[in-house]
């Protein structure tokens, strides 16, 4: 302690810091996928979109010197990949799960191929807001360094939740997701709605990727995502298709991921493999705790292929 350590207090602090640092890609991917799934489409390719977004953001930030331009390009790349997925899925007798997996492999492979020259060089990073100015403890200050994208992620989760509930546009999206027949009877162009929702969902995932390569951990390499995109898609089901709950689930996931290194750093070192599995155990536990024999998955959009 005399050396500036916080002892056991470091663990909750590290979990808070972990929630802030690690959760952002989860927030973006899950909020984006939430929108896509509410329109009745599943996009499993978001893992690939995340990696592609990370690569393109890093490449653009490196060549132009502007990380924010990188974020923008990552969003555009995500938009295109999302639109591609939606476009393919609109063809007759196309399975969106299979297409999603195909696009995931395509996008990761493409990102690895195009990203080769960018592994070595160092691109400028996105800055952070210092929210810990009030504290004299450097650890607290460090934990409260918040990236702008984290704030954007939180705001967009609330905005999406509000829009889905209160706007005409949100009603159309939900309608397309709940019942195609009703939507068609209302004159809603289901295909176009899903195309737009999937493209926007892809753009969100692209921005999540940009966070990975431009802020935390803040460099581009091929193991960067290691399945985070897939986990985030699963989080949407866990969060019962509610953007706000997606946000909480992502934060929880980030915090749980920080448990293992945090415990090891205060000297609780036995069984760290078990602690490393904490996020997944936690997810399973919560899934079991919240499931009910009385009702099916509540909140699941009626048209969603996976739960029908």
């Amino acid at each position: 302690m005399e050396n500036g350590g916080l002892g056991l207090w470091g663990v909750p602090l590290a979990m808070l810091a972990g929630a802030i640092r690690v959760s952002t890609p989860f927030i973006f991917v899950s909020v984006g996928e939430c929108l896509t799934e509410r329109s009745g489409r599943i996009n499993l390719g978001l893992e690939g979109t995340l990696v592609m977004g990370a690569m393109s953001a890093y490449a653009i930030a490196l060549t132009t010197g502007s990380p924010w331009l990188g974020v923008l390009v990552a969003a555009c790349v995500g938009l295109l990949l999302g639109a591609l997925h939606a476009g393919i899925c609109q063809l007759p007798r196309v399975n969106d799960i299979a297409t999603g997996i195909g696009l995931m492999l395509l996008a990761t492979g493409l990102a690895f191929f195009l990203g080769k020259p960018y592994i070595q060089p160092k691109a400028p990073n996105l800055g952070a807001i210092e929210l810990g100015w009030w504290s004299g403890i450097p650890q607290v200050r460090q934990a409260l360094q918040v990236n702008y994208l984290f704030v954007v992620g939180i705001v967009s989760a609330f905005a999406l939740a509000w829009a889905l509930k209160n706007t005409r546009w949100g009603l159309i999206v939900r309608l397309a997701g709940e019942s195609v027949d009703a939507a068609l009877a209302m004159g809603v162009p289901v295909g176009r709605v899903r195309l737009i929702a999937t493209a926007i969902g892809g753009a969100f995932a692209g921005v999540g990727g940009a966070f990975l390569s431009l802020y935390y951990p803040g460099s581009w390499n091929e193991g960067l995502s290691s399945g985070q995109g897939l986990m985030a898609v699963a989080l949407v089901i866990f969060a019962r298709w509610d953007p706000i709950r997606c946000l909480w689930a992502s934060l929880l996931f980030g915090a749980a991921g920080a448990i293992s290194p945090a415990l090891q750093s205060v000297g609780i070192t036995e069984g760290y493999y078990l602690f490393s599995a904490a996020p997944y155990v936690l997810t399973l536990g919560l899934m079991i705790a919240t499931c009910s024999p009385e009702r099916a998955l509540r909140g699941a959009p009626g048209e969603l292929g996976a739960v029908r």
């Binding site: 650890q139 945090a262 090891q264 750093s265 760290y272 490393s276």
Partner: peptide
């Protein structure tokens, strides 16, 4: 202070491990 991440290439875990050690001084 040693932190095992569990595998040879886990960028996010490695960054977390480094940060939590820094938090401990």
């Amino acid at each position: 202070q040693v932190i095992f991440t569990g595998d040879w290439a886990l960028p996010v875990k490695e960054a977390e491990a480094t940060n939590s050690m820094i938090a401990q001084g």
